[in-house]
């Protein structure tokens, strides 16, 4: 069996939004400890990992199940959540559906068809990074918006103790520099200068679910995948994005 009650449907919607920007389908691996899911996008450029411990739920009861979901359909249903709705997720094993129930002034139920998506058994690779930056999501997203004006990819750099978001187009350039004492920076753990270039659209998708005051943990090296990690409503979201590399 699987039944989970989430006090704020809107918080869970953010998690589904973040995943559905990058993935078509996902397998939720539910167990008595909580829900986890790991998947790569079809092009293998990005990896999404989510961990929602049972403590993040108002009520939680589950055996071990793999629940395969079409994320586009799930996202459309979650878009129907109202501000004060509770969310109940419930596996109907007989009908092979996931019941998605919004409980507000009325009880509204959707039965979502399950997909035969087997769990990937993916692990987030344990990479050692020379640099780790904790930054307010709003500040980072703003820097990405600046970069978006000049090109569709962006360099994330660590230079001389500063964290720099830099883009260069045919004609124009943009640069945002964060120093360690900036109000937007929570901490910078800098080991060495680094530079990696990334597709901007992916970075925007990965950070879309974060509110501006949420804290992003960004790990970067030179020509390495970037790791971006943040928490939403007690759930942990981790993303890896492969870089663009000079050939």
């Amino acid at each position: 069996m699987f039944k989970a009650v989430i006090s704020e449907a809107k918080e869970f919607k953010k998690i589904i939004d973040a995943a559905s920007n990058l993935l078509d389908e996902i397998c939720f691996e539910v167990s008595e400890d909580g829900i986890k899911a790991r998947a790569m996008d079809p092009s293998h450029v990005a990896l999404v990992s989510m961990d929602i411990p049972k403590e993040a739920f108002e009520e939680y009861e589950a055996d071990v199940h793999d629940i395969g979901i079409d994320l586009e359909a799930f996202k459309k249903i979650m878009n129907r959540a109202k501000a004060k709705d509770k969310l109940i997720l419930e596996l109907d094993e007989e009908k092979n559906k996931l019941n998605v129930i919004f409980k507000g002034t009325a009880r509204r139920k959707f039965a979502l068809a399950l997909y035969d998506v087997s769990s990937s058994n993916l692990q987030v690779p344990d990479i050692e990074y020379p640099n780790e930056i904790l930054i307010k999501a709003g500040a980072f997203v703003d820097a990405l918006k600046d970069a978006d004006l000049v090109n569709d990819h962006v360099a994330l750099k660590v230079d001389d103790g500063k964290f720099i978001i830099y883009a260069k187009g045919d004609l124009n350039e943009s640069e945002t520099i964060f120093e360690e004492d900036s109000e937007d920076i929570i901490s910078m753990n800098i080991g060495e200068n680094a530079r990696s270039t990334f597709n901007l659209e992916y970075l925007k998708d990965m950070t879309k679910a974060a509110s501006s005051d949420d804290i992003l943990k960004i790990c970067i090296g030179t020509d390495m995948p970037v790791k971006i990690e943040y928490d939403i409503g007690g759930a942990n979201l981790t993303f890896l994005l492969a870089p663009r590399i000079e050939s």
Partner: peptide, 14 residues
């Protein structure tokens, strides 16, 4: 700005 590589280029993910 180079060529997009995949995560498979960095680690074996199953």
């Amino acid at each position: 700005f180079g060529k997009q590589v995949t995560l498979d280029d960095f680690f074996t993910i199953n």
